[in-house]
């Protein structure tokens, strides 16, 4: 009631609200809508088992609204991927596949998005229990979009599927194929960040299989070819120490980190680990 006495205050508040509202750029509005919709979608995905279809549909409408407002934007791409995901939650796999296929077609030239859409499409088959078809589509991602980050995820995804589903023979084959793929990619694009990433993936593939001698052989080969960095040396030392219980080799590697990389955080860790090993009987 008192505010009515102070018309000046009212005008100032009104002015500020108008200025702030006018200041909301379309980027701000769209990013805000997308963030709120994403938050709602995450809640749906987290509570997949108990969420009501009504709520799923409500969130889908939020994303559809974004697509309608900015159809040719990156917001629309994210919204389409999310809608596909929400259809998957609703177990409407055909509808999800339609969304992903449409996204792949409409994103001509944007290979990363196309690869992502194709990957998601494969996952719908997997969720449906049709692994054979999923595998066909995943191989498609590898062939058609071989220069994308998404394609690099495919070999390990396949191997993990077999591993998760208790099929060690196929898992071993898939891991071997993954190593071969990453190695060939590293050779195809030498002296690039992609090559570095692929070599890391080879190492990760060995580690995932708990193939410690294989991992050490690969690190050794890399060491001959390039000068190893402190992180890889630390990994080598830990494999010796924790997995193979090879104390002398672990100490030797820690010592090398201390000598080659003085005044680094890794060196500090190596020094502490070496001291711990020295005091161990």
């Amino acid at each position: 009631m008192k505010l009515t006495k102070h018309k000046g205050v009212q005008w100032i508040v009104l002015g500020l609200v108008m200025v702030m509202t006018a200041g909301c750029s379309s980027q701000y509005t769209m990013e805000r809508k997308l963030w709120l919709a994403n938050r709602a979608a995450e809640k749906v995905v987290r509570n997949e088992a108990v969420i009501s279809p009504f709520e799923v549909n409500r969130v889908i409408r939020l994303f559809e609204n974004i697509i309608a407002k900015a159809p040719d934007s990156s917001y629309a791409v994210t919204a389409q991927l999310r809608i596909g995901q929400l259809y998957e939650v609703r177990k409407s796999y055909d509808a999800a596949r339609e969304i992903y296929a449409a996204l792949e077609t409409s994103s001509a030239g944007k290979v990363e998005i196309q690869a992502m859409a194709r990957f998601r499409l494969a996952q719908t088959y997997e969720k449906e229990g049709n692994w054979a078809q999923a595998l066909v589509v995943l191989q498609d991602v590898l062939k058609k979009y071989d220069k994308t980050g998404e394609s690099l995820a495919v070999p390990l995804y396949i191997a993990r599927y077999y591993h998760k589903n208790g099929d060690p023979a196929n898992a071993k084959r898939a891991y071997a194929a993954a190593i071969e793929h990453f190695q060939s990619m590293a050779d195809r694009f030498p002296k690039t960040k992609a090559a570095l990433l692929c070599r890391n993936l080879v190492l990760r593939t060995y580690i995932e299989q708990s193939d410690w001698p294989g991992a050490l052989d690969y690190i050794g080969a890399l060491d001959k070819q390039y000068r190893l960095g402190p992180d890889t040396l630390m990994l080598q030392a830990k494999i010796y120490e924790q997995r193979l219980k090879n104390k002398p080799k672990a100490m030797e590697t820690y010592q090398r980190i201390i000598n080659d990389f003085p005044n680094t955080k890794v060196m500090e860790v190596a020094r502490k680990n070496l001291e711990a090993l020295n005091t161990k009987k």
């Binding site: 500020l16 200025v19 702030m20 200041g23 909301c24 750029s25 980027q27 701000y28």
Partner: peptide, 14 residues
């Protein structure tokens, strides 16, 4: 201070 907040709000947008 209030004007500064409003100005910063504009600053983080196109």
């Amino acid at each position: 201070e209030i004007i500064t907040i409003a100005a910063l709000f504009f600053l983080i947008q196109p």
